[in-house]
Design a protein around this nucleic acid. Structure first.
Lengths: 271, 271
DNA sequence: TCAAAAGTGTTGAGTCTACACCCATGT
DNA sequence: ACATGGGTGTAGACTCAACACTTTTGA
C-alpha cells in the first residue's frame, strides 16, 4: 500500500483528456435617461454590455465578455477580472447563472463555461467608459417569458438584437432552447436569458436592486431599479412600506430636483 | 484575413494550460422510519449518500460521489451518470449547487467541480441498495444556520459526522468557510452545506418536495417531506390549503393504515 | 372501542392594494 | 403658481396561523 504522498508523486493529471474552462459575464448596469422637464426625475433602464468579437470564431458577432479561467484563479476571480477589464470597476455583485457545457458550444473545442451576472453600481450615461473598444452597452428593452417563450430586445441606438428562446423545465432544471439562429455568438443568447430571468427573480424579492445604486440613495431611485428589472410598476406608498425594514435613514437629503428633497437611505446591515 | 475555417484548422486548444472538470453529486432521498404503533404513519428523514474513498487522495475518508466530466457528455449528464452508478436509478431532479474552484481543493492538481443536489424519488428503507460497496446513506439529523454558523450532523448508525462552517455573504454570493477540519474529503463539507441550504429554500417554496415522492402520494406524505427538509412543523389543515392549487386529486385511495383512507394526489401540471 | 390521520370551518391577526391626501421644493 | 416627488393615513380585500370540530378506518 502506498502513501498519499507517493500516490501524488506518480499521478499526472495531464494524462487525461480534459475540457477548457471559461467564465462568461453578463454585465449589467442602469443607463440613465434624462427626464423631459426640470422637475421629472431621470428614468433608468437596464443595460447589458456586449462586445463585438474581433477574432475567430464568430468574428464580427456580438458576444458576452468572457475568457478562459487561469490556473491561478478561481472561476469567480476570473469573472471579476473580466468584468473589471471591460468596465474599469469592480462589480457590486456577482451572481452565478449556471454552467453551460454543451459539447459543441465552441467550435475551437470542448469549452465549459460558467456564467455570471455582474452588477455595476451607480448608474452612468450611455456610452461612457471604454468606448474606444468594441464594447457597447445595449439597453434591455423588454424581456420576459410568455406562453413558454422567452423574448428580449437589446438595443444600442444603431441596432437591435432580438432574442427568442423556448423555456423548458427539465429534470436538470430550467433551460432555454434557441428558436432559430440567435443574433449572438456561441450560446450566449441562452446565458443572457438565464441571467435576465435570474435578475428579475432577485429584484422581485428586493435582493439585487441595492447593488445597482451607490451606498446612499433615495427610495424613489430604489423603486425605479425594481421597476426597471421587474417591468411592473408599484405605487410609491406601498413600495416605501415594503422596503422600510430593509433600509435605514441617513441624515443626508437629496436636494436640487424640482420638488421636495428626499431623505437618503442606506441598505440595512443584517442583524 | 483568414476565414473561420482556416482559423480553426490551425487552432489547437491543447496548447493552453487548463484545469480538469468534475461533477460532485449530493444525492438525497428520504429514509423511512417505521412508526411505533400500527396506527402511526412512518416518519421520514432526509438522507445523503456518501462513499468511503477507496483510493488516494483522502483514502478512507467520506466523500460525495463524483467524477471527471467526459469529453462527450455535459456536466449535467455527468452528474446524472454518477448518480445512477451509485443508486441504480435516475434522480427525479438535479439542482445546480454552484461551482467550487478553489485552487488547492484537490491535491492531484487543478480540478474545478460543479456541484449538484440530486433527488431520488420514492423513500426506501435504510441500507437498501448497493450496500456491498462502500456507499452508505447518512441521515441528516439537524441542520441550519444560526448566528452565522452552519451546522449539520450526518449519521449512519455507526458513526456521526459533524459539520461546522461559517456562513459568509460576499459580493460573489453565499459561501461557507470550514471552521476547523471537517470530517469529509476535499471541500465536500462546503458543497454539502450549500446543497442543504438550497434544498431547504426550495422546500419552503413547495418546490423540491414533490421530487422525493412517487407520482401519486398523500398530502400527509407531502407534508412530511416538507417538514423533514425545513425542520418546521406545519398544521395539516393549513398545509392542505396552501398546496391545494399545486396538486390534483386522483381517484385512488391509500388504504391499509390504521385510520381513514386518504386520497392520492398528483402534482398539477403547470398551466 | 379508539388512536390516528383525513378533512372542513371559523376566527382574529396581520398583510397588501388602492386611493386620498398634505408637504416641500425650485423654477 | 404648480408639477413633481416625498411622505402619511386608511378602508376593504385578502392571506395566514391557530384551533375546534367531524369523519373514517383497522386492529
Amino acid at each position: 500500500m502506498i502513501t498519499e504522498k507517493e500516490f501524488l508523486e506518480h499521478y499526472s493529471i495531464a494524462d487525461y483528456d480534459r475540457p477548457s474552462v471559461a467564465a462568461d459575464t453578463a454585465i449589467f448596469r442602469l443607463s440613465i435617461k434624462e427626464g423631459e422637464s426640470f422637475r421629472r426625475e431621470p428614468s433608468c433602464a437596464l443595460s447589458l454590455l456586449l462586445i463585438k468579437r474581433g477574432e475567430h470564431p464568430f468574428l464580427g458577432e456580438w458576444a458576452l465578455p468572457g475568457g478562459f479561467v487561469r490556473m491561478d484563479e478561481t472561476v469567480e476571480e476570473c469573472a471579476l477580472r473580466e468584468s473589471r477589464e471591460e468596465t474599469g470597476v469592480l462589480p457590486a455583485a456577482l451572481i452565478n447563472a449556471g454552467v453551460f457545457s454543451g459539447i459543441d458550444r465552441d467550435p475551437r473545442g470542448r469549452v465549459i463555461s460558467n456564467a455570471f451576472a455582474c452588477i455595476i453600481s451607480g448608474g452612468a450615461e450611455p456610452e461612457a467608459g471604454s468606448d474606444a473598444s468594441d464594447a457597447k452597452w445595449f439597453e434591455v428593452r423588454s424581456f420576459g417569458t410568455r406562453d413558454g417563450v422567452f423574448t428580449a430586445e437589446l438595443e444600442n441606438g444603431e441596432l437591435t438584437l432580438a432574442l427568442r428562446l423556448e423555456r423548458r423545465e427539465l429534470i436538470t432544471g430550467r433551460h432555454f432552447i434557441p428558436m432559430g439562429k440567435q443574433p449572438l455568438a456561441f450560446d450566449h443568447a441562452e446565458i443572457i436569458a438565464s441571467a435576465l430571468e435570474l435578475l428579475r427573480e432577485r429584484a422581485e424579492d428586493f435582493e439585487a436592486i441595492f447593488d445597482f445604486l451607490p451606498d446612499e440613495f433615495t427610495l424613489y431611485a430604489l423603486q425605479s431599479v425594481q421597476e426597471a428589472l421587474t417591468g411592473k410598476p408599484v405605487s410609491p406608498a406601498n413600495f416605501r412600506r415594503k422596503t422600510a425594514e430593509l433600509v435605514e435613514e441617513t441624515d443626508a437629503l437629496s436636494h436640487g430636483a424640482g420638488h421636495r428633497p428626499a431623505k437618503l437611505y442606506r441598505k440595512r446591515r443584517e442583524v
